[in-house]
Each structure stands twice: as structure tokens, then as C-alpha cells.
């Protein structure tokens, strides 16, 4: 029992480090090779975890080998578009100017039900609204609506654009977030000055957010109770 416990901890750390090493690509939309690696790693890790008669290394070697191969594959895919196409395929257009491309749909084995479900998920309710629908190499469907069916943008309406303002968390549960502070261009002194005015200290703060314009939201811990 204790062997399984220790092995599980070791494998957890190794897989976590491996996924971190493979990067953010691995945990977002999966390409074919990434999907294969993720499935295999989870399967291989289970064997030495449960069967203490198998050496831990017999699980670690294939896991490290898969991580290494994936790293090399992603490097070669980055260097050669031909290699990437060979491994991941190419995006396929299945709707062009509101017209279905049945041949491509058949090749991809996408049914009309699947297609319309995807369209509804992306707030498209009529085929004629679609300029292009493209099945990406990771299997997701990208939809480009016809210009006249798109909601108007500020640029189309010739409105004066102001700087985008978005809030960042600068204090969370009594501690400053350096990332949030730099993100909204403020410093600790600015936040502390506000807190002094509110007769509070950093430890009293549950959440404080701010935007580059200096607007802020402050929630104190005492407000929660």
C-alpha cells in the first residue's frame, strides 16, 4: 500500500513536470500527436502505480520517452510546415459563402446534425449567414460570418475609441499581486494610499481590483461576514 502511495506521488510529480515541459499547447486544444501522447501517458502511469511487482522505472522510461518525442515533434512541426501538415493535416473549408461542401464533409465524416449543432453553439442560426466554416487541424470549427451579418463594431460606426480598460486583481486575500499591479500600471504605494483613506490595511482586504484609469473595487474581509 505504502509503495503505491509513494509511487503515485513520484509519478504525479513526473507527469506534472512533463506536462509543464511540453508547454501550454498540451493543455489547450489537442493536435493528433498531443492527444496520442496524453492518452498514452495516463495509461502507462497507471500500471506501476497499481502493480508494485513492476519496477517504477518501467513506467517512467516510456513516459519520459513520450515526453521527449513530443518535444522533438513539436520542434520539427515548428520548423517545417510540410512535416506539420503530414502529422496534423490541413484545415478544411466545409461551408463557403453559405454553400455546403458535401464532399469535404463526407471526407471528414461530419454529419449535418454535428455541423448545425456547432453552428448553433457559435450563435449562427442560418447557413446563409456563414461566409466560411473551417474545420481546424485540432478538430474545432471556425466560423467567419458574412460582413453584413456581423454586429457593427466601433470602427464601422466611426466611434472614438478610448483605451481598453480592464480590471486586474491587485490585492487578493491580504497580499499584493505584483502581476496585477504592473498590469494596470499602479504600485503598492497607490493601493496603500487608498487603503489609508478607507482606514484599512492590506491584511484586511479580501479583494481589490483596479483598472489603468485608477478606478478600483475594494472588498474588505469584514464586509463578507
Amino acid at each position: 500500500m505504502s509503495i503505491s502511495l509513494v509511487r503515485t506521488c513520484i509519478l504525479y510529480i513526473v507527469i506534472l513536470a512533463g506536462m509543464r515541459l511540453m508547454g501550454k499547447r498540451q493543455i489547450s486544444q489537442l493536435q493528433t500527436s498531443e492527444l496520442v501522447v496524453t492518452l498514452l501517458i495516463s495509461d502507462i502511469a497507471a500500471v506501476p502505480m497499481q502493480d508494485t511487482g513492476q519496477p517504477l522505472v518501467s513506467g517512467l522510461i516510456p513516459i519520459v520517452c513520450l515526453i521527449t518525442l513530443e518535444l522533438f515533434m513539436s520542434f520539427f512541426m515548428m520548423k517545417s510546415s510540410r512535416f506539420r501538415r503530414l502529422l496534423c493535416g490541413s484545415p478544411v473549408v466545409i461551408i463557403e459563402n453559405g454553400q455546403l461542401r458535401v464532399k469535404e464533409m463526407k471526407a471528414l465524416r461530419i454529419t449535418l446534425e454535428d455541423l448545425f449543432e456547432e453552428l448553433r453553439c457559435k450563435d449562427v442560426f442560418s447557413l446563409s449567414d456563414v461566409a466560411f466554416a473551417i474545420v481546424e487541424t485540432n478538430g474545432t470549427l471556425s466560423i467567419i460570418k458574412k460582413p453584413e451579418k456581423n454586429p457593427p463594431t466601433a470602427a464601422m460606426m466611426q466611434l472614438q475609441n478610448s483605451d481598453p480598460l480592464f480590471e486586474a486583481v491587485i490585492i487578493h486575500d491580504g497580499s499584493f499581486s505584483p502581476f496585477g499591479l504592473s498590469f494596470c500600471g499602479k504600485d503598492q504605494a497607490w493601493a496603500e494610499a487608498i487603503l489609508r483613506r478607507k482606514k484599512a490595511c492590506v491584511q484586511d482586504v479580501f479583494l481589490m481590483t483596479a483598472d489603468p484609469g485608477g478606478h478600483y473595487t475594494l472588498i474588505l474581509k469584514e464586509d463578507l461576514s
Binding site: 515541459l21 522505472v57 522510461i61 519520459v64 520517452c65 521527449t68 518535444l71 522533438f72 513539436s74 520542434f75
Partner: peptide, 17 residues
């Protein structure tokens, strides 16, 4: 950096095998 890590891991794998 990841490529170097992959090279090191490959070396480690080959050595352990």
C-alpha cells in the same frame, strides 16, 4: 530551452537503457 531539455532527456534515456 525545451529542445535542450528534450536532448538531455534523450541522453538520460539512452544511458539508463
Amino acid at each position: 530551452k525545451r529542445l535542450w531539455a528534450a536532448c538531455l532527456l534523450t541522453l538520460g534515456l539512452l544511458l539508463s537503457c
